[in-house]
């Protein structure tokens, strides 16, 4: 695990480079995934349009109620997407859990990914004691992994902790922690 220097914050908001997310929201996502285990859990974190900052956690029903598939209820989605539109928000994070496999997008995830501006956050609950959290951009079928920075606002607003579970070092963008 890398604890980046303050310089890292400069890359926040740069599309496709990193997901920065508040610890309270990350905890709520993990709690949702644990609660629905062994079924897959899913939801959205909305944020101001163009900000790339997730601020409003919206757990969604998994209409499929399945251990291997998730699907937003189409009517709930319409309501939530309209609400975001009215509030000038967009889906900054779209998350779901895999409950027996790794936190990596499946072919199904890639086929469906229809929000090119969103961070696709995956949580694996296959291990009851360890959180496996990874984030991806999925654009035109191309998957790009990105580091996740969990910001601990309640302790120190400048404290940033990074999670890059399961990432191959070759794919991690460390540009911010090289002291440049």
């Amino acid at each position: 695990m890398t604890v980046p220097t303050g310089k890292c914050r400069a890359v926040r908001g740069k599309l496709g480079v990193v997901l920065s997310i508040d610890r309270s929201i990350m905890d709520a996502i993990i709690a949702h995934a644990r609660r629905d285990h062994p079924d897959e859990a899913c939801g959205v974190v909305a944020g101001a349009a163009g900000s790339d900052t997730p601020t409003r956690h919206i757990p969604m029903d998994n209409a499929a109620r399945s251990m291997t598939f998730y699907e937003f209820d189409s009517m709930e989605q319409l309501r939530v997407w309209r609400e975001m539109d009215d509030r000038d928000e967009e889906p900054v994070v779209i998350y779901h859990s895999h409950t027996a496999t790794e936190a990596y997008p499946s072919r199904t995830d890639i086929s469906f990914a229809g929000e090119p501006g969103a961070h696709y956050l995956l949580v694996s609950t296959r291990d009851p004691d360890t959180e496996e959290i990874r984030s991806f951009r999925i654009v035109d079928g191309v998957v790009t992994e990105e580091p996740v920075y969990v910001i601990d606002a309640s302790v120190d607003p400048h404290a940033v902790q990074s999670y890059m579970f399961g990432q191959s070092p070759a794919t991690v963008d460390y540009e911010c922690s090289l002291g440049r």
Binding site: T108, F112, G114
Partner: peptide, 12 residues
């Protein structure tokens, strides 16, 4: 709207 769906099924 793009349908939001997916899951481990394809992977498995």
């Amino acid at each position: 709207l793009p349908a939001v769906a997916g899951g481990a099924l394809g992977f498995a």
